[in-house]
Design a binder for these strands. Sequence first.
DNA 1: CGTCGAATTGATGTCATTCAACTACAGTGG
DNA 2: CCACTGTAGTTGAATGACATCAATTCGACG
Lengths: 205, 205
Amino acid sequence: MDDFVEKFECYNPKTLLFSDMMCEVLGKPVEELKEFLDMITWRNVSKNDFVIRPGDMVKHTYYVEKGVLRMYVIDKVGKEHVVQFAPEGWFVTDRQCTYLNEPSEYFIQAIEDTQMALVPKDFLRRIMAVYPKIIEKNTFFLNRYIMLYQRRITLLLSATAEERYLAFMQTHPNFINRVPLYMLASYLGITPESLSRVRNELAKK
Amino acid sequence: MDDFVEKFECYNPKTLLFSDMMCEVLGKPVEELKEFLDMITWRNVSKNDFVIRPGDMVKHTYYVEKGVLRMYVIDKVGKEHVVQFAPEGWFVTDRQCTYLNEPSEYFIQAIEDTQMALVPKDFLRRIMAVYPKIIEKNTFFLNRYIMLYQRRITLLLSATAEERYLAFMQTHPNFINRVPLYMLASYLGITPESLSRVRNELAKK
DNA sequence: CGTCGAATTGATGTCATTCAACTACAGTGG
DNA sequence: CCACTGTAGTTGAATGACATCAATTCGACG
């Protein structure tokens, strides 16, 4: 399980810039990839700004180079539910929107001032024609996502509020102090009050 | 949301045989794909048989041609938690095991007599060298997985037992009478007793 | 220093679990 | 063919975990 943490949650590539990552993955200098990197644009958003809102059509995958994003929904009784946090080195997008051409149901919002690379939908298809090696990396990223979600589902099915909090602390130690507790509570599927009590109990020990 | 159901949960390809699906995806006759299809083996398991158990090393992705598999874990207090059901046309594997070379923590068991295709780990890598089109299909399958899991997480975070049951009934109408209720309860994250009461309440209406 | 959102704390309520008893039914062996 | 057995499913009563609501404190920021 510790391995899992290291390999997946606290994934910490040598560099967090999208261009550098591409160069490293493909083992090519940046000049050689210019044709493809020219497809990428960059965007900075301030804390609390929205990257997407419900109703938007999402055309990019967002790669976070600096900062943290959170993706969340608001349910029919007005409550927020955090689907994922995306810190440096992570991708986030609304796949339902991108793949099904349906307007998004989600919010993506910056928790800190954030710098991100906007990867257009056909970037992968075009670069893979020249550099098929990229596929392995992409498949790895997708599989990593699936594994993380599966782990989270297992926790939601089987663990108490306290256990889920402890699991989060183990797998995302660098997140504490970056995300407010009420968002963390939402991610864990409990109320801020409950999280407060859980932390209080743990502190006593 | 209805579209979602149709496009994802009740995905019903024209044919459920792995070879036929490959031919259809690539638009090639079966003879032409022989080199790759020879990598596939088939296996039949009887109801209640195990495909994998904790401690096994998983070398294949299983594609269900007929029957249903369920993947589940047993937690530290001995309770089962169903991670996914895999009916005809679905893939299932333990990615953690396959990707991280760690022994599996999961059970995969046949709920009905089941016929499946065993796809070895390097099948994709080898076939994509000749038929890059396969990548799109694979990426689609992986993204579909992510979307489904994301949806399930959202439900676990926000919905009551009754709402989760109703959502399941909507998205998997063909599953009722194929999976026993105690497994469905486990999938929904509730006890069999609670599910029984939920169904009882709904029947009254 | 004042303000507003975040976090904590207490009192109370509710949904789902737990434990136990019971029913329904399929499979097995005499 | 029927009694026996075990598993799935149901039902009831008591318990518990977390939610809700309301009041208060904390803390960042203008």
